[in-house]
Design a protein around this nucleic acid. Structure first.
Length: 277
DNA sequence: CTTACATCCTGATTGC
DNA sequence: TGCAATCAGGATGTAA
């Protein structure tokens, strides 16, 4: 489940190998993603140079020549891999390869997504920030606008559980189920706590834990849970650092109490019943 | 405005 | 063992 750290890791890995390359050919083998890939997609991007790779929330922004930006969202199960002669084709599961971009160094960028919750969309660069996917997003959790004062202001009058609140992309952009659980563990706050009941101290701990957890995960190239792989097809290393996510009944790394899993807002929510209040 | 919930999809897991 | 049912989950659209 790619969240901000996984997308940022992907961006950093691809920067070295694809920036400056030109797309010489594009193939759409399955256009039925979250939104249908338009029929002129290939024609729109062929011949353009990849000028810059950016990121907003969980969106990778591939800035192409001619003021065109390709937004890529990996959804639940998507991956973008660079494939070249160095790796045998048999090392990839090609069943769900939907898009393939051939570059001028004979490498290929392939978008693969079994569940097809992902999104690939072209938008004029000047309009990117105001497109329907990006315009309502809250601040970046690693940016200067995200802090406890901001959280407290957004939290006023909201009855939502803190975990749903952190996963609300309009509140803060880029956090999903895994990192919400880890942030709340480190902040010592239960996922089901309603946001308006949180003390200033608790909000402060959450605001501080958020960038700390995300930065640590980026440093380890993200989390692999089930199927996520980075752009070279390698698993991320943060998985082993997960303190609560996916660890139901395992001992809490801090106090040894068994980790619990409760459903909050229709999502599995792991927490330590002794450390989190 | 906020919140709740169904929907999309397929691989993995669980149940019989 | 094998097949069928269930679950997982990000974003979105609709309804309350």
């Amino acid at each position: 489940m790619p969240e901000l750290p996984e997308v940022e890791s992907l961006r950093r890995l691809l920067v070295r190998s694809v920036v400056g390359r030109t797309i010489v050919h594009a193939t759409v083998t399955n256009a039925a993603l979250r939104r249908r890939v338009p029929s002129d997609f290939a024609r729109q991007i062929v011949g353009r140079r990849i000028e810059r790779l950016g990121r907003r929330a969980k969106y990778l922004m591939v800035e192409l020549g001619g003021e065109l930006t390709m937004l890529v969202h990996l959804g639940m199960s998507g991956s973008l891999t660079r494939r070249c002669g160095a790796f045998p084709e048999s090392s990839f599961d090609r069943r769900h390869d939907h898009l393939e971009l051939k570059l001028d160094d004979r490498s290929r960028l392939v978008f693969n997504d079994p569940r097809r919750f992902g999104l690939v969309k072209l938008v004029a660069r000047a309009d990117a920030a105001s497109c329907s996917e990006l315009r309502a997003l809250g601040p970046e959790p690693l940016g200067p606008d995200f802090n406890s004062a901001y959280l407290a202001q957004k939290a006023r009058g909201r009855r939502a559980a803190i975990k749903n609140f952190l996963m609300d992309q309009k509140v803060v952009a880029g956090i999903g189920n895994i990192y919400a659980a880890e942030i709340l563990f480190r902040a010592g706050v239960r996922p089901a706590r309603r946001v308006y009941t949180l003390s200033r101290t608790e909000l402060k701990r959450i605001a501080e834990a958020t960038p700390n957890v995300l930065r640590e995960a980026i440093g380890l190239r993200g989390t692999t849970f089930r199927s996520y792989r980075d752009s070279r097809g390698k698993p991320g290393a943060f998985s082993r650092r997960l303190k609560v996510y996916g660890r139901e009944n395992e001992p809490c790394p801090r106090c040894w109490a068994p980790i619990k899993n409760v459903v909050v807002g229709q999502r599995a929510s792991f927490f330590c019943p002794r450390c989190q209040h």
